[in-house]
């Protein structure tokens, strides 16, 4: 009667706490140290924190970041100081979310949120540029159509 042993296991489990959830309808709390989609931050006065120093690109083990700096326009500066990040691109087909770019950043311009639910079916969609990464006045980056923002991620 060996197969009854199998039923016994199933029967016993019915009274234990459930460990699975109904993803994606139901979502779990994310771990503290989850590394997800990046954002480029601003100072309170609206200036961009990124100075285009390329340290993130230098440290990136996956070589997925491409940055180019430029002289800040004197009459309408983008960031404090002489230089700003003119081009900023992250290729999410390559990014391994190791967080080294965040550690390298001298101005805390680039940080990683916990948003990991973004998948694309086009290679060019995988390249997030400055427009998509930079946060707006409400502190949120641009939402791409393939990103699931439920519940609203904590961008800070």
């Amino acid at each position: 009667m060996g197969y009854l042993n199998g039923f016994r296991v199933t029967f016993n489990k019915m009274f234990e706490d459930r460990v699975t959830t109904e993803y994606p309808e139901e979502k779990q709390e994310k771990p503290d140290r989850l590394h997800g989609r990046h954002v480029l931050n601003r100072y309170e006065d609206g200036m961009e924190k990124c100075i285009g120093c390329e340290l993130c690109a230098a440290v990136c083990p996956a070589k997925c970041i491409y940055v180019r700096g430029k002289d800040n326009p004197p009459d309408d500066p983008v960031s404090p100081g002489e230089r700003f990040g003119f081009v900023y691109e992250i290729n999410y087909l390559r990014c391994i979310h190791c967080d080294l770019c965040v550690e390298a950043c001298p101005t805390e311009a680039i940080t990683e949120s916990k948003l990991f639910e973004f998948s694309f079916s086009n290679r060019s969609d995988a390249i997030y540029t400055r427009d998509e990464l930079i946060v707006d006045d409400d502190g949120r980056p641009q939402q791409m159509p393939w990103e699931d923002w439920r519940p609203p991620p904590d961008w800070a």
Partner: peptide, 9 residues
């Protein structure tokens, strides 16, 4: 060359 690139790239 100003701000065009960094030495390591």
């Amino acid at each position: 060359y100003r701000f065009k690139a960094r030495p390591w790239d």
